[in-house]
Amino acid sequence: MAEISYRDAVTRGIAQEMSRDPDVVFLGEDVAKPGGCFKATVGLYEQFGGVRVRDTPISEQAILGAAMGAAMTGLKPIAEIMFSDFIAVCFDYIANEFPKSRYMSNGQTKCPLVVRTANGAGSRFGAQHSQSVENWCMMIPGLKVVAPSSPIDVIGLMAAAVRDPDPVIFFEHKSLYNSKGEVPDGEIVDTLGTAKILRAGKDCTIVALALMVPRALEAAERLRIDYGIDCEVVDVRSLVPLDTKTILGSVAKTHRLFTVEENPRLCGWGAEIVSIVADEAFYDLDGPPVRITTPHIPLPAADIMEDIVLPTPQRIVDTIRRSLGS
């Protein structure tokens, strides 16, 4: 057991899979010799060599297209898109190619690949380098979508994603790269499609993802201390497949649902969860589900503005306290 950073967990997760399987290859902009824009892949080039860890031109379509062609013909590529905002310039592969090839070919083709990308705000980079775009991918049939919140989940879900036979979009949160957590020694393999209850509680369920998970946990602690409200915190981890059983089970116990989402409000992932709960657990609810999100605006760059628009522990505390009437 050792404490490592989320950043180092990325390296370790990739290294674990590359050591295990010679078909795993890794490509992206500045990922090899420079070790990545966020230094999340330092040492992989030295460990595995330039044939398996390759720097590419700034050509996001070429990166994802090449990953797909390699995956279709037998490799297990991991492709990096440096900032998740850049998915917009290669969205054809994510929306039209990866997820539809198997279906359109009536099951003839395969596309086992992982696209890992730095998602989310907190770095004061402004509206084109800070977005949370997991919902762009969640809406597409044929994709799988994960977003880990801790170093151990980064490794375990990376392993699960690489071993998965479907295309997986792997959202790392750039504001979590410096965060740390305990990680056991040896191989770590997790399961896609599983949410985790990080804190048990009886008064309400808070469902969160990625950077919003530590914020939800902090808010839950303050709600307990200051208001005696006992929150259950669920880390969704995997948007597709979605572990609705864990979420519905938690709501059945607490009777209240709050989602904490970094994506802008319209069509955020929480809307789908609220819809499922409303459909299937309406009579478990003692009050309306509440979504705590970034407002429907482009993200401002300045720190004091960015800090206000993202859901903060304080906003979570205030929203839940008001909703529960404490």
């Binding site: 379509q61 297209g65 090449a66 797909m68 013909t73 037998g74 490799l75 190619e97």
Partner: peptide, 22 residues
């Protein structure tokens, strides 16, 4: 495959070729 989004398959063909090279 036959690809109906103009240009999409050129990078994909590169990927298949990369596998052959690898």
């Amino acid at each position: 495959g036959s690809y109906a989004i103009i240009g999409a398959h050129l990078p994909i063909a590169c990927g298949a070729a990369w596998r052959a090279q690898y």
